[in-house]
Design a protein around this nucleic acid. Structure first.
Lengths: 339, 339
DNA sequence: CTGAAAGCGCTTACAG
DNA sequence: CTGAAAGCGCTTACAG
């Protein structure tokens, strides 16, 4: 099958290629009647503009890039990324933008990908995940002047647009809820310590525990895998003054933690309360179902995509706080059993 | 920052643009010494070919498309897709191909996307997932003559290349294993019934159960979600002649099934053995860890990508059987408790 | 409102 | 081995 070109449409419509282009782009230069006729013919013969020709002449790729910097096994198990991607994609495809995905090993590789995409004019902009403290990607993107939206913050995003949720508020609310239930020894299994949102949560945890006089509050670090989450839990539950409640930085670690607690003969929630960050269907899969901090991740992705499209359209950078994660109490939290 | 073009490289190297193009593409037409000099200059000034210009003149997009036809919530929770994507992507990026992703609502929308990609010359080929019986996408792709590899089969893929794993053999092995443990009442919670691989597994299940004289063998249908998997399990375990072993068509349903069994006061594996298809870290997260049918999903994706690249390069279609899923026994299977 | 033409940045026969 | 030129399929000032 031969692909129709703009010339085919022009011929059938009896107009010039320029007229077809104006009609397609909704620009002045053709009468409304002619525009409609041209559009009808285009649909009829199955014409879509060559993205390459359009990219070359209009200097716009109509594509957005997303580089994921996590190993396959972690990428797969966390629902977060796929939900984010589907939200991003829904917004993009509604505006005929394509999503280009690349998995990278580290930030150096990621910056190299950005440089290549920029030099190849492959994408009009990028979405940046997993913001770190002193993130080298930020100055690199600023230097390239490649439109970008950082999913993360607040702060540390330079002149780039950013979108974040108020993790500090969510964590504070969670600790207050546990304290209201009667917990005094609360621990936290954190994610990768150099991620900006981990830092924000840690600071908030320290602050609220201090304010409420929880002297035994402790954070241990992990890497979002079930393995490490389980190991951290085992360590916490083996200590002399074991916590009566643990907050996990993702759903996968929380489920692993639940499993370890049960294995050690503890009853959840009587002996141990568990709260998971990133509410996902996984949290409702286990028994008892997990109390979790959730938000609409696809919507978050859609917002980021919309924000990026605005930057690509030439609008100034914006910094936006999205919906704050909300706590959904389920069977994994209760007042601590008296001992 | 201005993006360097091939003309910039040519000027610095003191050669024509054509020479630079030959050097870049590893084609004859320049001496080895000149080629090296050109390449060094390109690297030095951070030059990468404009993908648009290249696509337009060479009629190759250097991109591959993947349309995912599942709702966000299912896409997120199944590790399978993200693992597949990372395998595909690793293979593609090693050859400088981009991966374009789109989420679609149904097969009509998916076919429309293929048509658009084809007309836009956006991708050089596509990877097709979730093959169904009488899949309308197959003739649509054949008509477009868009290079494609179907991840699924065997059979029902027309003239297109395809890649599959021998699910029938894996299922047969699993049933034989359960029978060897002493199980006689084995049930199966299947995935969406119109998917080709569900059909293959069902046929294999029926056949092996008949051969081994398991008259109570029953398959119930589900949709891969934990919710439905749990519901199906509850129904199975409430029947008069409840099964002593259940095989689930994915990990998520198996975990939900485990949770339901425990909720109903049954001990896994003594009262009920559980086998999950799609071994993933999730299976090791729960207690007891799940016996599972696993395979290297990223490698599967990488194979499919390689196969597609071969078709794009003009080689004839191939039909390849990949690694057969292998059973990893864990704590969720044991001989049935005597009653 | 329309047409003819230049130009985007490459690739690729075609001469030399 | 190299250079000049046409062409890929669009967009976009510029004349009419």
């Amino acid at each position: 099958m031969k692909r129709p070109t703009i010339a085919d449409v022009a011929r059938r419509a009896g107009v010039s290629k320029g007229a077809v282009s104006y009609a397609l782009n909704g620009q002045p230069g053709v009468s409304e009647a002619t525009r409609q006729r041209i559009l009808a013919i285009a649909t009829e013969i199955g014409f879509s503009r060559s993205s390459a020709a359009r990219a070359l002449s209009a200097a716009t790729a109509e594509a957005v890039g997303l580089a994921l910097c996590r190993p396959a096994r972690i990428l797969g198990i966390e629902p977060f990324f796929m939900e984010l991607i589907s939200g991003v994609e829904a917004e993009l495809s509604a505006r005929s933008y394509a999503l280009t995905l690349q998995v990278v090993a580290d930030h150096d590789a990621e910056i190299a990908v950005y440089r290549r995409w920029w030099a190849e004019r492959r994408v009009d902009g990028v979405l940046v995940c997993d913001l770190r403290t002193d993130d080298r990607r930020i100055p690199a993107l600023e230097q390239l002047q490649l439109p970008a939206v950082v999913i993360g913050g607040p702060g540390g995003t330079g002149e780039l647009s950013s979108l974040w949720s108020d993790d500090a508020a969510a964590l504070t609310e969670t600790v207050e809820y546990l304290v209201a239930l009667g917990h005094r020894r609360i621990a936290r299994v954190g994610g990768l310590p150099d991620l900006r949102h981990t830092e924000i949560r840690t600071d908030a945890f320290t602050a609220v525990c201090q304010r409420l006089g929880l002297v035994d509050a402790v954070t241990v670090w992990s890497d979002y895998t079930g393995e490490e989450g389980g190991r951290a839990t085992r360590r916490l539950l083996s200590s002399a003054q074991r916590p009566t409640a643990v907050i996990y930085d993702n759903d996968v670690m929380a489920i692993a933690g639940l499993s370890v607690a049960q294995e050690m003969g503890l009853t959840v929630p009587d002996d141990l309360s568990i709260v998971a960050w990133d509410d996902s269907p996984l949290c409702r899969l286990v028994h008892p179902p997990l109390t979790a901090l959730g938000r609409d991740v696809p919507a978050y992705g859609a917002h980021a995509a919309r924000q990026l499209l605005a930057v690509i359209a030439g609008q100034p950078a914006t910094r936006v706080q999205d919906e704050t994660p909300h706590l959904t109490p389920r069977g994994s939290t209760a007042p601590p059993r008296q001992r």
